[in-house]
Amino acid sequence: MTVVAAADGSALGNPGPAGWGWYVDADRWASGGWKHGTNNMGELTAVLDLLQQTADLDEDLLVLCDSQYAIKSITQWMPGWKRRGWKKGDGKPVANLEIIRALDAAMRPNVRFQWVKGHAGHELNEQADRLANAAAQAYAAGRKPEPGPGFGAVSAPAEHDFTVGGRADDDLFSLVDEPGDEEQVVALERSLLTGEVRSDPAAVAALLHPEWQEIGRSGRRWSREEMLAEIAPLTDRVELEVLDVQRLPGDLVLLVWRGVGPGSSTLRSSVWQRSGQRWQQRFHQGTPEV
């Protein structure tokens, strides 16, 4: 028999009031958070609390996550980080190290992970997302969230008192074990969402390859010239959630991310190409998430 649970995290502002939550069923769930944290802290802590509360579980445990960062941190990158003394490939400290080390101690052979698409109607994922977001909202309102019953007769552990180390960007850049080019690409992609850059056509032009093109979320095909003529600051703030970063042959990096704005989300992919000593976006595509 396998127990199936979903784990999720949420942060208002990233960093900001943050929450985590995991859900098995109406009788087995938990949530918590902090006054100040990041989305990735929430994602990792949801898994950590679930593992700790099911430490004596004889059955297999399948953990559903919509965060590639959480899954890859635990299943792919952690052994290398540990061998290097909890350092990444460039010698920099691993982000969220307190939580990562606690996860390393809590992991066991009968635990498996599976990625699920977020905000897509998956019942368990939606429940975990609701718990994490409610916890973040509670801290934003100055109150403690409902902790939940935990897992059966096992009492909930002490509060997870983790702190934000460094900039919020450090969490997103931890999506790749070998930072550098990928880190730059994520930062440049994020800059294209800022009013400071979007209000300066020259700044945008420097980031777009001469042969740049886009297929927008409406299906319209944009040329570089059309984009530079019409680009302007976004009406609403859009949060960038990294889903995957891949190196491609020929000095290319593929970035797949989710843009989350008020009432909608869009799946986006960008191809960045090294041009001399800098990176420029070569292609971009957006698809409304349903």
Rank of each mutant, 00 (worst) to 15 (best):
M1Q: 07
T2A: 03
A6G: 00
A6R: 00
D8Y: 03
S10K: 11
G13H: 09
G13T: 11
N14S: 15
Y23E: 00
D27A: 11
D27L: 13
W29P: 00
A30M: 06
G33W: 00
M41E: 07
L44G: 02
L44Q: 12
T45N: 02
T45K: 02
V47D: 04
Q53R: 12
T54N: 10
D56P: 07
L57G: 02
D58Y: 07
L61I: 04
D66L: 10
D66S: 08
I71T: 06
K72P: 01
S73C: 08
S73Y: 00
I74S: 01
P93T: 05
P93Q: 10
N96Y: 06
L97W: 15
I100Y: 00
A105R: 10
A106V: 05
R112S: 14
G121L: 04
H122R: 13
H122Y: 15
E126I: 13
R130E: 14
A132R: 01
Y139L: 03
A141M: 08
G142D: 10
R143L: 14
E146I: 10
E146F: 05
P149W: 07
G150V: 01
A153I: 13
S155N: 02
H160Q: 15
D161P: 12
D161A: 15
F162S: 02
G165H: 15
G166A: 09
R167G: 14
R167S: 06
D169C: 05
D171I: 03
L172F: 14
L175C: 07
G180R: 03
E182L: 03
V186R: 02
V186N: 01
A187N: 08
S191E: 06
V197W: 08
R198L: 10
S199W: 08
A205S: 14
A206S: 08
H209G: 11
E211L: 00
W212H: 11
G216A: 06
R217Y: 13
R220K: 05
W222L: 09
M227T: 08
A229T: 09
L234E: 13
D236P: 04
V238T: 03
V238N: 04
L240E: 04
L248A: 05
P249L: 08
G250H: 06
L252H: 07
L254K: 07
L254E: 00
V256E: 04
W257Y: 15
W257Q: 12
G263Y: 15
S265Y: 01
R268E: 14
S270T: 03
Q273S: 11
G276A: 08
Q277H: 08
Q277E: 14
W279K: 00
Q281P: 04
T287Q: 03
P288Y: 13
